[in-house]
């Protein structure tokens, strides 16, 4: 599966680079990450909980950084294996400074999945991975803003990464958004409210 896109970070390139290369921050950005340890300058090892549609499980894997040109570009290779299958992916990331003091990230990569993840999770794969990626990049941006703020004020600014369940909720919201267009979502919401009211009346009358 090909992955391609861009994302604008609200900070200068050097800071973005710092955040991307910080395993602790990276771990918070990769949803479901249970641990991520640096085992060499360019290699991390860790465990990650992945859920794609009906398929969920713990993956253990490696992240390898290569072709590194600080603070411009790098290639990230991810290899994960777990009970629901395996995934391997390579992504090339480019950071381009913008006039506004922001930084544009361009990424393109290729992800391969196998096992139950591929055979049963396939229907969800595209939308889930896009959503995961966007949520992850948003988290990175939050971490970036926190770090920037603390640099400016000289005080520690707390950055609370989203929990796994918050993550899952966001992904579910994204997925629902794909299935129902916004117009339909409104009608669906209205329908749900009506059903709840009717049920409430029925139950109250009984009581």
């Amino acid at each position: 599966m090909k992955i391609e896109g861009e994302y604008t970070f609200d900070g200068v390139r050097e800071l973005v680079w710092e955040v991307v290369r910080d395993p602790e921050v990276l771990a918070t950005a990769l949803p479901g990450t249970q641990s991520l340890e640096k085992i060499s300058e360019n290699e991390y090892e860790g465990e990650m909980h992945v859920r794609i549609g009906p398929v969920a499980g713990l993956f253990s894997g490696k992240v390898l950084i290569s072709d590194e040109v600080a603070p411009e570009s790098l290639t990230m290779t991810v290899e994960g294996k777990g009970k629901p299958g395996f995934l391997t992916g390579t992504g090339a990331i480019k950071l381009i400074p913008q006039d506004s003091g922001k930084t544009l990230m361009q990424y393109q990569g290729d992800m391969q999945v196998g096992g139950r993840l591929a055979s049963v999770g396939q229907r969800m794969m595209d939308s889930v991975s896009k959503s995961l990626l966007n949520q992850g990049l948003d988290s990175l941006n939050q971490a970036l803003l926190a770090r920037q703020a603390s640099r400016e004020s000289g005080e520690e600014v707390e950055y609370r990464p989203p929990s796994e369940s918050e993550f899952a909720a966001s992904v579910a919201r994204d997925m629902a958004g794909e299935v129902f267009s916004s117009r339909w979502t409104i009608w669906l919401a209205i329908a749900v409210v009506i059903v709840i009211i009717v049920l409430a009346i029925v139950i109250l009358n009984r009581g």
Partner: peptide
């Protein structure tokens, strides 16, 4: 897919 992974191994797909 291009890795010979079967992508619809369920009666849902």
């Amino acid at each position: 897919d291009e890795n010979a992974q079967l992508l619809n191994a369920s009666l849902a797909d």
